[in-house]
Design a protein around this nucleic acid. Structure first.
Lengths: 209, 209
DNA sequence: GTCTATAGAACGATAGAC
DNA sequence: GTCTATCGTTCTATAGAC
């Protein structure tokens, strides 16, 4: 393959650094340096740091969104209603799958999702678009059919809970596990653990009021 | 009550702003302005912005830690073994309870916890101390007794899942719920929804390997 | 203990040559 | 499309008067 153009290299570098140090913790200077590009390249290709972040977010979220959508379509086309476990896997699975481009695995993607969803900056609200909301609304409706008796508000809370657990590897606590337990192994294990965890959580009966 | 001293007002202002805009998104200038203090007051009372953040974190986390510890002691002193639900409530409950000082409710505390646990900055690793780890280790052991067959690694993942769900209100997604559903109501409701959600999640059988 | 004033560094953005 | 150079801003930290 030929060397990627400057624009792509900027996106790659920005994705890496935004995931590692957050939006505010990453300077345009650091991005252009890692990309081997000039400082002014960000302004030329994207207009501003914020618009670069928006482009990074779009590139990361789009395939996840598409996979979530396709998974739901597949489940809904079937004759038997989807199970809670199948819905959880279709929704959360793509969030854990590793990026197509990077060889670094889903851990980085997961951390970037947290940066996008959890950044307290005002600009962060524009990093996600209406497409993501549409997918979540569709899953909300699908879960509502399989989980009758759950109020829309509590169901919405639970769907946000899925997103929160997706980001669990961002929570870094001091812990020295006895042996092994290396993080690269945890990447794929975390995906399966999360499905187990979330399927049980979503299946819980409604909270009595 | 007399007006609090400058030091306390700085802590209050910093807690508020760090929760709202994150560590990097909050300037010392904004903190001193909100506290009605001088710019140099932070340097005098705390030494630096980072040490101020550490003091804020200590003040927020300490009572939570104490409550978690007391709750566990109470449960372990009893003759019947604690249930998963009781352990979840003893661990997650204090995380949702509102701060003693603020009238703004637990939502702000919850967002501050995310800032402390989720901030990608390097300094953030020193905001939590060994006391928090000790509490989590104790809960790990308690959960391990009630949930046999679960590997320590998966159990650790689930405990981090509790922390993640605690932060669920930080995940702001565009969603216009049909009627009502105002956020002040969600503060107390979220606490109960989370207990339901997490009890079911923790009780899930081990992931088959 | 509290203030003013400022040092010193890093940042985002951009003008203009090539 | 890529570069150099720089402008203007904002930040933390601190010296020193009161």
């Amino acid at each position: 393959m030929a060397t990627p153009d400057t624009r792509t290299q900027l996106l790659d570098a920005a994705e890496h650094l935004f995931a590692e140090h957050g939006y505010r913790g990453t300077s345009v200077r650091a991005i252009t340096k890692l990309a081997g590009a000039n400082l002014a390249a960000v302004g030329y290709h994207f207009g501003s740091k914020a618009e670069l972040m928006a482009a990074v977010a779009r590139r990361v979220i789009e395939p996840i969104n598409a996979a979530q959508c396709a998974g739901l379509d597949k489940l809904l086309a079937r004759t038997p209603d989807p199970s809670v476990s199948e819905l959880v896997e279709a929704f959360a699975g793509p969030l854990f799958d590793q990026m197509s481009a990077g060889g670094e695995g889903g851990s980085r993607t997961s951390r970037l999702i947290v940066t996008i969803l959890g950044d307290p900056a005002e600009e962060a609200r524009s990093w996600t678009g209406p497409a993501e909301d549409t997918v979540r609304e569709r899953y909300l409706a699908a879960f509502a059919r399989v989980l009758p008796g759950l109020s829309p508000e509590e169901l919405w809370f639970r769907i946000r809970g899925i997103l929160a657990v997706t980001a669990v590897d961002r929570i870094e606590v001091h812990h020295q596990p006895s042996p092994g337990c290396t993080s690269p192994v945890a990447g794929e294990a975390a995906r399966r653990w999360a499905i187990t965890f979330l399927t049980a959580a979503m299946s819980a009966p409604p909270t009595r009021t």
